[in-house]
Amino acid sequence: MVKLIAKSAAEGLLPVEVAGVRVEEIVAPLASLSPFQGQDAALGKALKKAHGVVLPKAGQITQAGEVSCHWFGLNHVMLMGAAPDASLAKVAAVTDQSDAWCRVRMTGEAARDVLARLTPIDLRDAALPVGATARTDIQHMSGALTRVGEDVWEVMVFRSVARTLVHDLTTSLETVAGIAEMRSA
């Protein structure tokens, strides 16, 4: 029998640290939930009961301990940090996505400048405060960007482009660090 080796999406690529900004991979269970027609409220109830999290509004994330729920598109949220309870499948289409996405966390003061080079969306406090999330374009890749803390950002892209994401983040990090160095010289 073929012996397969389980590898995370960014295995061997992360963590990376440049000029005080650290990029690391997040490995945790991930499931997409799409409420059946007219079942939004029922899904909200089931989520709260099974995982303690509230169903997030568009562009928002909700959290309860280790478990979080990210808005992920029209009629679409992602449950993170816990395997979805069986009760959710009664009111929503539930799909395990744990191995389908590459999730990275970027921490550091310059993280926003690094991301600003890769995405067209407004990253300022007024447009993307802590707890806000956006599905957007990340250097031509379809992804999700979430502000989880003042200087903490989460980036998600398809697993198949994990290496490209790490490359783009690293290149942008080095550029931003280089500009800072030039200015201080």
């Binding site: 562009g59 067209p120 969306i121 374009d137």
Partner: peptide, 11 residues
């Protein structure tokens, strides 16, 4: 209507 003002390249 869902996301607000977004760049044309997303559409």
């Amino acid at each position: 209507p869902i996301c607000g003002d977004r760049d044309i390249r997303e559409f």
